[in-house]
Design a protein around this nucleic acid. Structure first.
Lengths: 175, 175
DNA sequence: GCGACCATGTAATCTGTTACATGATTAC
DNA sequence: GTAATCATGTAACAGATTACATGGTCGC
């Protein structure tokens, strides 16, 4: 799942600019299981174009002429399908969370700090929830996309729930 | 959360070899929110030693003399505490999942392939569950560690549950 | 006019992954 | 004896992150 494959995947949903792809990761349907910044996306796009897997179309004459829409070529679609069909076992789901790393050492932090971290994280999760619910409300949401978005929503709800239910206990029984 | 900080964190629980640290990520209490391979751990350990944050002790005379136990120095403990106290806002929780990426495009895959992917993933999640329950059953599990392990357990249970409940729907309504 | 957001791109650096290389110990 | 697990390490490479650099458009 390098940046190139990720871009290919996003473009399967339809032509998009580099900026659009970034948004798909930041606040779109891909955000809860992968991601990439501009510094990965643009180089990836250029490589894909050179390989003939995508092609660029100029922005529609009038305004914002600077933007470049990229679209999958037939070759690109085939490549992605082949990648998806690859029977090699998939890697494990990876999660990395600075938040969990910190809370792991709760016994080394003052109460207020823990409480602040948890409050901050709850706000983040709520924002995520809004995003994933936005995805679910769209009509062009295919079964697979819906399945994954619902999984993402359940996961965020679980995290939120855990913080709400168990934070008091953590703050109370501190040594 | 680079490899160095991660190692420091693991060593706060007690002296360990590079191999032990790897296990803490692979099948120990750190596994569900961070990770590193040997190729990151050993160089990190050597850098930390050079900086005086950890120190090496030779293996206990008898057998397995080749292994080297690393332990936090006072300086190292201070450094970690400072890091934990750092009030800079934490980065978001990142998840990356090849599984979700694939399932997102379920409409491009044959039924059996989807079913196989889901079955495989269920097995992985069950394995994870066993690991996290092992962590929770240990007595030396501090409140923060317990809080995070319970969060991990809830998350895995949610994922498992989602697969069990919704996979039939995904397989049924395929176009 | 100004701030937020749209939009593209490059370069340096950092760091992680992968593959390689080696060898001891333990349980079957 | 042989396979699994313990155990440490290096080197090359790929890749991502970060910071930089620039400029247009939209709404208030």
């Amino acid at each position: 799942m390098d940046a190139k494959t990720l871009c290919l995947g996003v473009l399967l949903k339809g032509p998009a600019t580099g900026y659009d792809i970034r948004k798909a990761f930041e606040s779109g349907p891909f955000g809860h299981f992968c991601g990439a910044g501009f510094g990965s996306i643009y180089p990836a796009l250029h490589k894909l174009e050179k390989e003939g897997l995508i092609e660029a179309r100029a922005g529609d004459g009038s305004k914002r002429a600077t933007r470049k829409f990229f679209a999958l070529t037939r070759k690109g679609e085939t490549a992605l399908r082949r990648e998806l069909a690859n029977p090699a076992p998939l890697g494990p789901d990876l999660m990395r969370s600075e938040f969990m790393f910190r809370l792991f050492f709760a016994h080394l932090m003052p109460h207020e700090r823990i409480a602040a971290l948890i409050a901050e994280r709850k706000a983040l999760y709520k924002k995520k929830l809004v995003i994933v619910e936005g995805v679910l409300s769209r009509k062009d949401c295919r079964p697979g996309e819906r399945f994954i978005a619902e999984m993402g929503r359940d996961l965020v709800l679980t995290a939120l729930n855990h913080l709400e239910k168990n934070a008091p206990g953590l703050l109370g029984e501190k040594d």
